[in-house]
């Protein structure tokens, strides 16, 4: 220690110490937002981002979810060629193209949905998955089109369709086009139903607004992850409207199960097995060995 350091008051020394500590590799430890337990990142990852202490389901990126659900071999992405445009020339404090660029850089995706054809324990499926990191998983024209292209592949191949939601709702920057995606996506599913193909809807944290109020609840089976916020209007809007405090656990998966809005709550670590089982049951396939 140099002579200068000895002259410094103890408080400053401590701050320097704190700085040094923050030089440790980032992301090695994380804190569970639910139980505040300090978790080792590798543990969390091997546990599919579910807190080993309290079971809190952390948010996942679309491709992580697809990795968890689908078999590793034979995957093919659908609709990646569909990309966003700024049809309204929308601008608030930033232009819409600037927001798209930021979102794409921060999330690594070109819009808020990734659709993948593949299989779950050898059962062929098409899975559409929301990317919440891309503008809050908001639903715009690209999402609608990728969803529909996914449904079309399911129809052509005569295989089930699964959607995993994580979204704040419609994308304001696309105005009424975004509202119409509710009608578009939901209408496509009616064809799937005519063809007698299963549609499973998996709701994760959060599933709100226009996404919740379109295809999310028309699944043949509606599954929720534990503790997910799911609803039409946001809690803040409701609180402002009714001017009373919301009940404990309002709009959480467990609340929805109690009210009869979802079929079941499935822990992420069991999701792959349970989904495969449901698909086999709905398609009258023999039970897995």
């Amino acid at each position: 220690m140099s002579w200068l350091n000895k002259l410094l008051p103890p408080k400053i020394k401590r701050e320097q110490g704190a700085q040094r500590r923050s030089n440790l590799p980032e992301g090695l430890w994380s804190k569970c937002p639910a139980c505040e337990a300090v978790l080792y990142a590798t543990d969390l990852e091997s546990n599919l981002q579910v807190c080993p202490k309290c079971g809190h389901h952390h948010r996942l990126k679309a491709r992580q979810r697809l990795d968890i659900l689908l078999d590793p071999e034979g995957r093919q992405e659908i609709g990646a060629e569909v990309l966003p445009t700024d049809s309204l020339k929308f601008k608030d404090s930033k232009t819409y193209p600037a927001r798209l660029k930021d979102a794409s850089e921060s999330s690594g995706e070109s819009d808020s949905m990734v659709v993948m054809q593949g299989s779950i324990k050898t059962l062929p499926v098409v899975v559409a998955c929301f990317e919440f990191d891309f503008m809050g998983g908001s639903m715009g024209s690209v999402l609608g089109e990728r969803f529909v292209r996914g449904v079309r592949v399911a129809l052509e191949q005569n295989i089930p369709f699964i959607c995993i939601t994580a979204s704040g709702g419609a994308r304001m920057q696309e105005g009424l086009f975004s509202l119409m995606q509710m009608a578009k996506t939901t209408a496509a599913l009616s064809k799937l139903s005519e063809a007698g193909l299963p549609f499973l809807s998996i709701l994760t944290d959060p599933t709100m607004g226009g996404v919740s109020a379109s295809f999310a609840f028309v699944g043949d089976v509606v599954i929720a992850e534990p503790g997910a916020l799911i609803g039409f209007a946001g809690p803040r809007v409701i609180e402002q409207t009714v001017r009373e405090k919301l009940p404990e656990g309002f709009q959480r998966s467990e609340f929805l199960l109690e009210k009869g809005a979802v079929d079941m709550i499935v822990d992420r670590r069991e999701m792959r097995d349970r989904v495969a089982q449901l698909l086999a049951l709905l398609q009258k396939l023999p039970a897995a060995a």
């Binding site: 509710m182 009608a183 939901t186 209408a187 599913l189 009616s190 005519e194 919740s212 109020a213 379109s214 295809f215 999310a216 609840f217 028309v218 799911i230 609803g231 039409f232 209007a233 809007v237 409701i238 409207t241 009714v242 009373e244 919301l246 009940p247 309002f250 709009q251 009210k259 009869g260 809005a261």
Partner: peptide
């Protein structure tokens, strides 16, 4: 807009709207 209230959420506002979109398409 659809009513943003506690009771509306409890009785499935989202499902009711989504169901209509689904049925009206056909």
């Amino acid at each position: 807009g659809a009513y943003p209230g506690i009771d509306a959420e409890e009785r499935g506002q989202s499902e009711a709207i989504g169901r209509n979109l689904y049925e009206m398409a056909g």
